[in-house]
Nucleic acid binder design. Structure first.
Lengths: 214, 214
DNA sequence: CACAGATAGTAGCGATACGAAACTAACTGG
DNA sequence: CCAGTTAGTTTCGTATCGCTACTATCTGTG
């Protein structure tokens, strides 16, 4: 391939990126981060035997209801988490229920509220989550780098969520509502319940530096 | 709020997250990363005076054509970059041209190819890019953390892109086609052209650990 | 108890994103 | 000259997603 096949003359190169301040490293990193997310979600979401070709929104919902604790598995909480409207969230949930990946049950104490739980089929489906490729890539990092990366991303998420007026959705282990009395159990002052060890790693709407219901 | 208002009995808590292996840190970081991207793109993309309410895909395209070098500003290159089809990329470009944010010109050497350039209006529009909130949050990090974060994200992007059969799209300064002879200019063996300093910071389709045209 | 206001969830509408496939035009190699 | 490839567009069907309106339920106050 010779120079003649290239579109721009050398003289043209002066104008094309001129007048443009050199992109700062932070801006560039932000672009790469969005690009990374796009690569995970967009590229070739084809179905296979154990991967039923869910849309990005459906994967997000399935992941959410697999990870959220029992106070947070409602359509409304998911809509807040995902920075969308309740209507949109309701549709996504409905579609997943129709596939048998989620199931709905009534809240005995509040007739308005619905409890959404992931089904065994839903858990099996999560094994084919396209996001796991990213998880594996992160897992391949040396442990100190991986830990630092996770901390940074968490902090950025919190910053952005605050700026977008979305709730922060942290883990109970970092929540100031929680009182770690014993080794295996923790008292949550917000929900007035005793949390098991598995609860501690789950997402919670009531996560708070800022108390929302106290 | 008392315990009675809470939906699940303590006994139910044993089943809801049981049978679920504790989510590993890498998986959790991957989820947070996608969540972060969602917060940037999804939440309240309302229009204001200098921000014309573009869709996420349109923002991505506008950013791409602002940053890509002169060999990479084509609809096809953008479609590869964004892990989408040429048809979709064509539509997004057309819409931005209709808004006057991009402009098209013919490639003299190849009648099939189109050159897409960002207009002054497009550059002005980028000032209102919702992604800048993320850029600012990253810029607020201490410099060593920021640099490490950027490196990690770049590496992850490259890994994922390779796995998705998408091109890697790096900067010329990291490309092995490039031969830094002088301080201000670099010879690119791939395109047989002399690159200016501003070219070096731009995205290139021909970026290569793997030579695609050599 | 009555009632106003807030909240959980759903339904329908419209605009749009996106991928798949078909198509045209132009380039490339023999 | 001609088969094969590549750049780009168009069309179409599906799904996303925000918005608005609506119902049902809960909560607080007098």
């Amino acid at each position: 391939m010779t120079d003649a096949t290239r579109p721009a003359s050398p003289a043209a190169s002066a104008t094309e990126t001129a007048g443009n301040p050199p992109i700062c490293a932070a801006h560039e990193a932000a672009e790469q981060l969005l690009h990374l997310a796009r690569l995970v979600q967009g590229g070739a979401t084809s179905a296979s035997e154990n991967r039923p070709a869910l849309t990005p929104a459906q994967w997000t919902a399935l992941r959410y209801f697999a990870r959220a604790n029992r106070f947070s598995r409602t359509p409304s909480a998911f809509s807040e988490f995902n920075a969308t409207t309740r209507g949109t969230a309701s549709q996504v949930v409905k579609s997943l229920i129709g596939m048998g990946l989620l199931q709905r049950s009534m809240n005995q104490a509040d007739g308005r509220s619905a409890l959404i739980d992931i089904t065994p089929a839903g858990r099996a489906c999560l094994q084919g989550d396209p996001m796991t490729t990213l998880g594996e890539a992160i897992a391949a990092l040396p442990p100190p780098l991986r830990a630092a990366l996770g901390q940074r991303i968490s902090a950025l998420t919190a910053t952005l969520a605050r700026r977008k007026n979305a709730p922060v959705f942290g883990n109970c282990r970092d929540c100031r509502h929680c009182d770690s009395a014993a080794d295996n159990a923790t008292w949550c002052h917000c929900t007035q319940t005793l949390l098991s060890a598995s609860d501690m790693g789950a997402l919670c709407v009531d996560f708070a530096p800022v108390a929302r219901r106290a």
